[in-house]
């Protein structure tokens, strides 16, 4: 019952309500990680609704905010060693491309799913990605490109990471309107996201398969 309420509060963007229900879950003796799994299900549903244009970015952001606060409440009751580290995810739209929206949606969905997202913004040069990797030591680098004319800059980011000797320290994911799985393979990326939810699912899969080392 409490878990269903938690699911609905997150789905309905009720940030305060979700926090209260999370506290009630703990009082009712519900295992915190089980409650968090339920909250994650709600976020997956939010992603689906967004994909069908039934809800929009402001609602996604509120749901994301709700799950972040719920996670704060629930994880306090989980021993530190069981919590795991948040995976750092550096994301940006490549140089020459000013399209910000798709990348921002992916960033929001990743945050909602517990990633520590560092958003470099739009029109980001390859060397800025390299600098950010050296500084933040992330698990992932995500490059977005909307246009066929800028998708080639995703390869430049990967080449720059190689040249700087940090390519193997990260998993590189690419996405954007003009990209495909084959394009991702051709440029040497590790994964391709068809849309925001697909990117989140694939990033989580990479984490779960432990092919992706978390940077402490």
């Amino acid at each position: 019952m409490e878990l269903d309420k938690l699911y609905n509060a997150i789905l309905n963007q009720d940030v305060e309500g979700a926090v209260k229900i999370a506290e009630a879950c703990l009082k009712a003796g519900i295992e915190p990680l089980r409650a968090l799994d339920h909250a994650s299900e709600a976020i997956r549903q939010v992603g689906d609704l967004y994909g069908r244009s039934e809800i929009f970015l402001p609602q996604v952001v509120l749901s994301a905010e709700a799950i972040k606060k719920v996670a704060d409440v629930l994880l306090k009751k989980v021993p530190r060693k069981k919590r795991g580290e948040k995976a750092k995810f550096i994301i940006g739209t490549v140089e020459g491309d000013i399209h910000d929206i798709g990348k921002s949606i992916v960033a929001t969905m990743l945050e909602a799913q517990g990633f520590d997202v560092i958003d470099l913004g739009r029109d980001v040069a390859a060397e800025k990605f390299v600098e950010a990797v050296k500084k933040h030591k992330p698990a992932f680098v995500g490059c977005s490109a909307l246009m066929t004319t800028t998708a080639i800059a995703q390869r430049e980011v990967i080449d720059a990471l190689k040249e700087a000797g940090v390519r193997d320290d990260v998993k590189v994911m690419v996405g954007g309107g003009a990209t495909t799985e084959l394009h991702a393979k051709e440029i040497g990326a590790d994964e391709w996201g068809a849309d925001a939810m697909d990117a989140v699912v694939k990033a989580k899969r990479l984490l779960a398969s432990r092919t992706c080392l978390l940077k402490k």
């Binding site: 402001p58 952001v61 509120l62 905010e65 929001t108």
Partner: peptide
């Protein structure tokens, strides 16, 4: 002001 950033900060009215 750039509205997507405002939305992501939860500032919907300003956005």
């Amino acid at each position: 002001p750039e509205p997507i950033s405002l939305i992501r900060e939860g500032k919907n009215d300003e956005a």
